[in-house]
Nucleic acid binder design. Structure first.
Lengths: 205, 205
DNA sequence: GTCTATAAGAAGATAGAC
DNA sequence: GTCTATCTTCTTATAGAC
């Protein structure tokens, strides 16, 4: 990885831990293994590093519209996989979703950074809501909608059903972001949540 | 309100908008209407102001264990009120909960400040989780548990049911904290969520 | 592209008069 | 308790040699 990229990487780590204002150019340089002034050969200033992190994320996302997918493919293909869906598969779906978001290093650091900067301006607020509210609900709504179409789930309001599926997972994700020691507790709760969700919305034989 | 208290109040407002590190002692003094050095007659330093805000909140909370209650009384009394519960009452319960948390000035500022400082140390992380995860789930779990006991709702896992009731409300609250213009959308979604929740968990005649 | 030296300015905090 | 003046330190950023 070249220096320019390593700066982004170390900056993202630091921003996600301490917040933009508490990270000094010197800290980033130190992690990269260069002196602070050298950093200015790669970026105009500290703000430019932050901006590039946001831009890079947007590009990663555009290049990867299936971001919300469990296995990284598109929802139609996912739906194929879930043709023979049952409760255990649904639990796996939720667990995998949770594990990916919680442990993927880039995803986690970006989410934590955005958490700390979300009130800075309207643009960042919109980015946060887009990433962790609108897009997950859209994508998961598509998946759950397909499961409804297939008769595996029953609902006359898929958006609300999706909110009820996603919100507990999101809430527990934020708990683990600030208290990683609560991961086991969270995983257990998510499994219970999904089994309950399946009972509530599943076909009642 | 005396100067010492006004400092806390203005500091809380600023911290909740910009985060601790982006608020300067001078900003706080200006809002209070004094010069920065005068501020040091009231507090040892900037950190002491922040600490006192946290302490004050803890005291407010202890003096007010019924914090999570809708009408400010204890859950047993609340349960009385909900003896003749129906879907519309449940919607009102959720709407009131949401409106209180979203609009109460002190609550809102404290929540936003804590959002921005939650990763600073374990203590703050714990405070956040306690305020916006453990305690709401405990209190609302008591309420919903009473509704189950009365036969208004049916569930063999009240904690998970409570998570499913609360998480969507919490999620929409955080959306509105960063995008206040989405309040109407959020209110509509919450009403749909609660009506759906009632259908899923309500007695099925 | 990386370094050392340093400028420029910001921010927290203190001293001491009133 | 509030002020003005000031100190100190920290932080960003630039200059210019290699």
């Amino acid at each position: 990885m070249d220096t320019k990229q390593r700066i982004l990487d170390e900056a993202l780590t630091l921003f996600s831990q301490k917040g933009y204002a508490n990270v000094f150019v010197n800290d980033i340089a130190e992690k990269v293994g260069i002196k602070a002034p050298s950093l200015y050969k790669h970026y105009k200033n500290k703000q430019a590093i932050f901006d590039e992190i946001i831009d890079e994320m947007n590009h990663r996302f555009e290049a990867n519209e299936h971001n919300m997918s469990i296995n990284g493919t598109d929802p139609t293909i996912d739906a194929e996989i879930y043709k023979n869906m049952d409760e255990d598969h649904l639990v796996k779906l939720g667990n995998d979703l949770f594990a990916y978001f919680l442990h993927d290093s880039y995803t986690k650091r970006f989410r934590k950074m955005l958490t700390l900067e979300q009130f800075k301006d309207k643009e960042l607020a919109k980015t946060y809501s887009s990433q962790y509210f609108d897009m997950p609900l859209t994508y998961q709504g598509m998946l759950l909608g397909l499961l409804v179409a297939q008769g595996f789930l029953v609902s006359d309001d898929v958006p609300v059903m999706t909110l009820q599926f996603y919100a507990p997972i999101y809430l527990l994700l934020t708990v683990c972001d600030r208290q990683p020691e609560r991961e086991q507790e969270a995983i257990k709760l998510i499994e219970k949540h999904i089994r309950q969700f399946d009972k509530l919305y599943g076909r009642n034989f």
